[in-house]
Simulated scan of single mutants.
Amino acid sequence: MPTLAERYAAAYDQVQVATQKANRAAGSVKLLAVSKTKPVSDIEAVAALGQIDFGENYAQEAVEKAQKLSHLGLQWHFIGPIQSNKTRPLAEHMDWIHTVERDKIARRLNDQRPANLKPLNVCIQVNASAEPQKSGVSVAEIGPLAALIDELPQLQLRGLMAIVENTADQARLAQQFTLMAEQLELLQRNYPSVDTLSMGMTQDLQPAIHHGSTMVRIGTAIFGARQPKAAPEQ
């Protein structure tokens, strides 16, 4: 069995190779290590290898880890669904939120972000595959939500996030990735702060990077199989 360090090195190399194959500049794609359900000791071990950006899906767990590891200077990204009653701790402890899809959530995050902290980096979650069970705004809703976020002083609009369809159909994946890249380009015309396209995971990172992803989310390939949560958050 490969060690945690070996798995991280392999994942990191995979991102670099995919970046090179796509004729993208070295360092233009960031690896987001998804550490949900994993112990603090694993995060400390990966951070010691040079990893800075970590993604979490559950609000309480994310905040607890950010507090315990505040001395390491890590960047914490929340990539899970956001409940209205969990916006305050996220606004207080996260550096990034990738899953903003409602005006109400954007306003709450802005109002609850402490004034002594830098504006919270946010991405708009887009339902690129238009699947009814998926979270995220439609393409038509990106513009209005972006305009609202841009007006909120404690938020910094950074880009778009998507979880594409779980399919082996490469043409369908390419279509969805291309759609996201096009939408990012449209946003960049109006918002100079926009520079992030958060899309792609272990199984589809190569086509995601080929089509313009700047941040790929890798969890199991680094940390191993996820541990089940004891109970869902309320």
Rank of each mutant, 00 (worst) to 15 (best):
N121Y: 08
A91Y: 01
S213P: 06
T3D: 04
M199T: 11
K118S: 12
R217Y: 13
E151T: 15
Q83W: 02
T178S: 14
Q203I: 06
I218T: 06
Q133Y: 00
I52L: 13
L4D: 05
A59Y: 04
Q183P: 03
E182C: 01
R107W: 08
H77K: 12
G73A: 09
G224I: 09
I218D: 05
T202P: 05
L4W: 10
D150Y: 08
A162Y: 05
V100I: 11
H93K: 14
N57K: 02
A171L: 06
S135D: 15
L117Q: 15
Q175L: 05
L145R: 14
L31G: 10
Q227I: 15
L148M: 04
N85H: 14
T3C: 07
T214P: 09
T19E: 10
M180H: 09
H210W: 10
L31H: 12
Q16I: 00
I97F: 03
A171F: 01
G27I: 12
Q112Y: 06
G136Q: 08
G143Y: 04
Q234G: 15
I52Q: 08
Y12E: 14
G50I: 14
V164D: 13
M201E: 03
N116P: 02
M1F: 01
P2E: 04
A168W: 04
S138I: 01
L160I: 02
I43V: 15
A225V: 14
G212V: 10
N57T: 08
A45F: 05
L152A: 06
G55R: 09
M199L: 14
T214K: 09
L152S: 12
D103Y: 15
T178D: 11
